[in-house]
């Protein structure tokens, strides 16, 4: 019962992060800000979903796999974000500034 509640809460929270990440991707004005919104959101979102589902895992290999997926997701997403940001910087894309 507790497990189900935890799952509900964590997954719902994860969903919220995903939504905010998506909105950020849509609404933020340039590559760098979008990068920020996106990676934060989807690392956290994926992590919360994975942790939430952990409580539903029938056996320990499944649980390990869930954690592994999260870990890999975080690593991949982080590295990718870094690479894209670096490449954008290297290509000389200017950052957005608030209009005075």
């Amino acid at each position: 019962m507790l497990a189900d509640v935890l799952t509900l809460a964590l997954v719902a929270l994860g969903c919220w992060f995903f939504l905010s990440g998506t909105l950020g991707l849509l609404r933020f004005p340039d590559v760098y800000t979008r990068l920020h919104a996106l990676t934060k959101a989807d690392n956290l979102g994926l992590g919360l979903v994975a942790f939430g589902l952990l409580w539903q895992a029938p056996d320990w290999p499944t649980a390990v796999k869930l954690l592994l997926v999260w870990l890999l997701g975080v690593l991949a997403s982080t590295t990718a974000a870094h690479m894209v940001g670096r490449a954008a910087l290297g290509a000389g894309q200017s950052a957005w500034r608030a209009e005075p």
Binding site: V11, G14, F18, G21, T22, L25, V31, R34, L35, L38, D42, N43, G45, L46, V49, A50, L53, Q56, T62, L66, V69, G73, A76, S77, A80, A81, V84, A87, A88, Q93
Partner: peptide
């Protein structure tokens, strides 16, 4: 820019993985 599109793809990938995790249950 292309970077924006790549970022979107990155987001989809994460979201898709999350969907799969959910589906596994």
């Amino acid at each position: 820019t292309m970077a924006d599109r790549m970022l979107a793809a990155q987001l989809f990938s994460s979201t898709g993985i999350a969907i799969m995790l959910v589906l596994s249950v």
